[in-house]
Simulated scan of single mutants.
Amino acid sequence: MKLTNKIGVIVDSIGVGVREGLKKAKEVGADGVQIYAVKGEMDPANLTAAGRRELKDLIASHGLEISALCGDLGGHGFQDKTANPDKVEKSKRILDLALDLGTNIVTTHIGIVPEDENGEIYHSMQTACEELSQYAHNAGAYFAIETGPERALHLKRFLDSLSTNGVSVNFDPANMVMVTGDDPVAGVYALKDYIVHTHVKDGIRYREVDPREVYGALGFEPMDHGKISQMVSSGEIFAEVPLGEGKVDFDRYFAALQDIGYAGYLTIEREVGDQPEIDIRKAVEFIRRYKA
């Protein structure tokens, strides 16, 4: 196996701001970057046409490209029908920004897809995602749902219910390992028609947990949310770890991506740790071993 995929880095994982983060991403050996585009200087409302051109030129000046933008708006995704109109419009503006900056992918969380396909929350999510799917499809673009909150086959069933693949998948193997205990390799094959972007991350699951305890859900209140949060942050339930130190079988996982013909980015995400730049540099080296 010899990977040919480009390597990306989430600039925000480095923790030094966008512009300095671009320099660091190039220094650690990335081909491209993913950037959060929800608030602050990257909020679409704060970037004029001239500002977008300047940022695109700056990224190119470092020899980089954008693998995707992150447009995660929080608040249980699209479960709340009263909040969805504003969220859908904001998501569209983030996609417009992505296209202006040279990528056609916006990654996001949509909330946990409920088991009850006839319930109000499922319908609210379906309605919002159908609108986003059509908008992205008409622009030749994708909203990419991050894996983890539900098992791959259940997510596939939800995606199959939409009229286009404008809402597709950002595959994160560590989220699956840590939260649902799903097998990332089986997940790749289940979601093969939808994977347009990936996060490279590793993790360990120590005990079973209701995904709602981790991601939250509309109308769901854990018995002791503070205790659950403490257990998550302390690593008592699961832990994100450097690549190769967790339970993601990268030999099989990368082989599966290659087998389905995935040619997109392998984008490194590091959400914990006090030396993110060092961890990300090591992650680039880890992936490069599969490209040698």
Score class of each variant (00 low, 15 high):
2 K>S: 10
3 L>E: 07
3 L>K: 04
6 K>I: 10
9 V>D: 02
13 S>W: 04
16 V>F: 00
17 G>L: 03
18 V>H: 09
19 R>V: 13
19 R>Q: 11
20 E>T: 12
20 E>Q: 14
20 E>C: 02
20 E>A: 15
22 L>R: 02
23 K>F: 05
26 K>D: 03
32 G>F: 08
37 A>I: 03
39 K>D: 13
41 E>N: 03
43 D>F: 02
45 A>Y: 00
46 N>L: 10
49 A>N: 10
57 D>S: 15
58 L>I: 07
60 A>T: 13
61 S>D: 12
63 G>L: 11
64 L>Q: 10
65 E>W: 07
65 E>F: 15
66 I>V: 15
67 S>Y: 10
69 L>N: 05
69 L>W: 06
70 C>T: 15
72 D>H: 12
77 G>R: 09
77 G>L: 10
78 F>H: 00
79 Q>L: 05
80 D>E: 12
81 K>S: 15
82 T>I: 10
88 V>D: 00
90 K>V: 10
92 K>D: 06
93 R>M: 05
96 D>I: 04
97 L>Q: 14
97 L>I: 08
99 L>C: 03
101 L>D: 04
102 G>K: 12
105 I>L: 11
106 V>D: 06
106 V>R: 06
110 I>E: 05
112 I>R: 15
112 I>P: 10
115 E>K: 14
119 G>I: 04
120 E>W: 00
121 I>A: 02
121 I>R: 07
122 Y>Q: 02
123 H>C: 02
128 A>F: 05
129 C>A: 13
130 E>L: 01
130 E>K: 13
135 Y>C: 08
136 A>Y: 01
136 A>H: 03
136 A>R: 02
137 H>R: 01
137 H>M: 03
141 A>M: 08
144 A>S: 11
146 E>W: 09
148 G>F: 05
151 R>P: 10
153 L>F: 03
153 L>N: 12
153 L>T: 14
153 L>C: 04
157 R>F: 00
158 F>G: 01
161 S>W: 01
166 G>A: 08
168 S>G: 12
173 P>D: 09
173 P>W: 08
173 P>C: 04
174 A>N: 01
179 V>Q: 06
184 P>L: 09
185 V>L: 09
185 V>Q: 09
190 A>T: 15
191 L>K: 01
193 D>A: 14
196 V>G: 10
197 H>K: 11
204 I>L: 15
211 P>C: 04
212 R>E: 01
213 E>R: 04
213 E>I: 00
214 V>H: 06
215 Y>N: 07
222 P>R: 00
223 M>N: 11
224 D>C: 01
224 D>K: 00
229 S>H: 13
229 S>V: 12
234 S>M: 09
235 G>R: 00
238 F>D: 07
239 A>I: 01
239 A>S: 14
241 V>F: 09
247 K>H: 14
248 V>K: 08
252 R>E: 14
253 Y>I: 08
254 F>R: 07
255 A>H: 08
255 A>N: 12
259 D>W: 04
261 G>L: 08
263 A>N: 15
263 A>C: 11
267 T>G: 03
267 T>F: 00
268 I>L: 15
273 G>Y: 06
273 G>K: 06
277 E>H: 04
278 I>W: 05
278 I>M: 11
280 I>K: 04
281 R>E: 13
282 K>H: 14
285 E>A: 14
287 I>W: 03
290 Y>G: 12
292 A>W: 04
292 A>K: 13
